[in-house]
């Protein structure tokens, strides 16, 4: 049912935990549906003065696929510029996992939405700062 790649991410999730004083937090999913993801980001700048995702962490309540897709999205986003990170899709997550069972596709969407929500949250906070 699950690929070896997915099992690896489930067993050894990357970037698991929370970031205290995060610059943006994306909270997606619904406990009633059995999947909830919280994505934390810390934003910095690279040598070209572009905003990048310096650090990213996740907390997830959910099934094997939910945990693995959370892990993958954090890996994909880490170090990328905000613009690049925003372009990451659920298909990118599925590709890294070498496929997902059809019933678990919504987990990859949740991961994409979680990252986008964290970035949006960051932008909103920036607005109120200025």
């Amino acid at each position: 049912m699950y690929s070896q790649k997915l099992i690896d991410h489930f067993k050894n999730p990357r970037n698991m935990g929370r970031i205290e004083n995060a610059d943006g937090i994306g909270k997606v999913g619904n406990p009633v549906c059995g999947d909830v993801m919280w994505i934390y980001i810390k934003v910095g700048k690279n040598e070209n003065n572009q905003e990048i995702i310096e650090d990213i962490k996740f907390e997830t309540f959910g099934c094997g696929a939910a945990v693995a897709t959370s892990s993958v999205i954090t890996e994909l986003a880490k170090g990328k510029t905000i613009e690049e990170a925003e372009k990451i899709t659920n298909q990118d997550v599925i590709d890294v996992l070498e496929g997902l069972p059809p019933l678990k596709k919504h987990c990859s969407l949740l991961a994409e939405q979680g990252l986008k929500a964290a970035i949006n949250d960051y932008r909103e906070r920036q607005k109120t700062k200025t």
Binding site: I7, F10, K11, C33, G34, F61, C63, A66, K104
Partner: peptide, 25 residues
């Protein structure tokens, strides 16, 4: 509470334990 059933089943399976769950997954 605060954990999802399938995740527990997968970890139990890694340890060679077979059980089941009523979770959606």
């Amino acid at each position: 509470k605060y954990v999802e059933g399938e995740s527990m089943l997968l970890h139990l399976d890694f340890e060679g334990i077979c059980a089941s769950s009523g979770s959606a997954c």
